[in-house]
Design a protein around this nucleic acid. Sequence first.
DNA 1: TGTAACTCCCCTCCG
DNA 2: GGGAGTTACA
Length: 704
Amino acid sequence: MSVSTHMIDFKKELNQAQYEVVTKADGPSLVLAGAGSGKTRTLVYRVAYLLEQGVAPERILLLTFTNKAAHEMLSRVGELVGKMGKKTKPRTLNREEVQGEAGAHSATGAGVWGGTFHHVANRLLRKLGSAIGLKSNFTILDREDSKDMLKRIIKEVGGPEAAKGGRRMPQPGIFLEVIGYAANAQLKIDEAMELKYPEGMQLFPLFEKVAARYAEKKQMTHSLDFDDLLTAWLRLLKVPRVREKLQGFWEYILVDEYQDTNVVQDEIVRTLAAKHKNLLVVGDDAQSIYSFRAANIENILQFPKQFPNAKVFKLEENYRSSPEILSVANEVIAHNEAQFKKTLFTGQEPFIKPELMVAQDPAEEAEQVAERIMALEDEGVLLDRIAVLFRAAHQSQALELELNKRNIPYEMRGGLRFFERAHIKDALAYTRLIANLNDESAWYRVLATYEGIGDVTAQKIIMAAGELADWIQLPELSVSLSQAASKGWSDFVTTIGAAHGQLKAGPGAIIRAIMPYYRRYAELQYQDFKDRMDDIEQLALFADRYETLEEFIADTSLQEAYAVRGGHEEGHEPSVVLSTIHQAKGLEWNTVFIISLTNSSLPHPRAAAEEGGLEEERRLFYVAITRAQRRLYLVYPLSSSRFTMSLHQPSQFLREIANGLITGKLDTDGDEGYIDVDPVTGDITSNGVDDDGERSFLPSIDDL
DNA sequence: TGTAACTCCCCTCCG
DNA sequence: GGGAGTTACA
């Protein structure tokens, strides 16, 4: 063992339980870590410890839930090992054994392999995918691309009724949900339908046909959707030669947020760890909130059975939240039956109780939150230490208006992200097309922006273009087009030619080459075309950081990096964070507002209707609460709009919090005025509404 | 026949 | 803001 000349005093910087994990979690190990128990810290120190023990960084694989989490953890590892001095400082970017040039840009801090399952899958498949017949220039389809493709397939295989958009035809989104769930849960189509779309069982033959055609089409166009990245990784591991190579390669595998992995991910990590057996998984059943993606809580529960000699560790001391916030969190989660009972404790001094706020409607809710934010800022709370959380992305709307009005900087997370916005996707489609001539969804997307070219003409062009082997041949392509379409077509040929001419100059140059045309299109199409062109300029600048088109496309498809709505680049000036609860997982802020706490939002009626859905919604509330360190505000609007009669009722979860734990009262008397969501049908039954609309509680800022 | 323009209506969560 | 459905025009 190396002499301890290092400067990390593991014993001193960790509590006893954390220290045990960091130093003893060899072999299969399960860490049950409560919210705020220093789970990230523990993982970071574990990686640093392994490096200090002399493990080569590239032999460590750290799988996280978001790429952001991977970057954060690995940069912290980098800081830690920086302290250790040269002797044990890891080499960086040295992964030649399984990785080629394609992966040179990747989520690394200290040369450790890190990222999401999808991210790592992408890197591996580009390099090794030929073993399962995959081309290295495959395209990644995002949800919208997948839906577009499915829409066309439904028309194609669904017969005349579907072509006309027959009255009973389910949306493409339903098909995608069923097919995706089947992939993630490793189910057959009919089994997935039983769970996700039981009312449509009589359409099973159609679903099966669509699924088959979808798979076929993805293969033809060299594209993978998000779910395919995982299943293809698994398929890759069925190839003995590849499996043995990878099993031998990673000596230590660490997986964060294990409660949100699905069976495919579980099988991947168990296969990868089969040789060295150093598999460390960390999770918290109380924070499992991704069952819609087929996350399987059994992965955690069954871990000790899969590995009979597994070590089990528990982290229960909460370092994040005040005792008052923790009490509310414990109280909320205690209402769930399916859970490991555990109670988080803290040694922190008492602070102030969480506070309930009620507003007339979302607009007033936004005003109140904005006012309170300004008051907090006056008291010295930095804006970037404040977050506003909500169930659904669109619930940020009213607040965004209000914050803009008051010039309070904010950044929005969740919902439509930079790379998902229409004009950005248009620009990206050109880069995809240049990289992969067979990328059908990119073809449709690009052609749709040309005058006179609609679905039918586009299809004709794409059919003909299937003959092309290279863009060079494009001018020779013969398609008979209507008069209306030929102008658009010649514009297209010019533009794509210019873009292709920049192939050697890199992705940024390609984007700039299409801008003259796209500006003309955007001017006609969008009122805010100037903003949109600015976005595209930003995209080109971002693209300049990449040398190859493939890396750029892969990162943007995986949402690796994203700019932020509200005009504030991440990290520029301190900004309030607006986020869905899902996106807030793993993060923490001094002050947290949870808004829209009504029975039509949290629990969300559709989610509550699914089996186990209500408990998952409660866990979602629990996750939101446990993001807060010092101040927590629970906010609900009485109606959905100032102008409608439709009244909301406060979330049933608020009622479950015992009196005395929070400041403020629910605006209702006794049981009256509550609506219940039937957990089976999702039906809403009202037992009378509270319609006086008076605010019984006005927030004051005196007691801050 | 295919495209463009117009209207209505909706919207859970994500890599 | 965007997707689906409908209608008017080339």
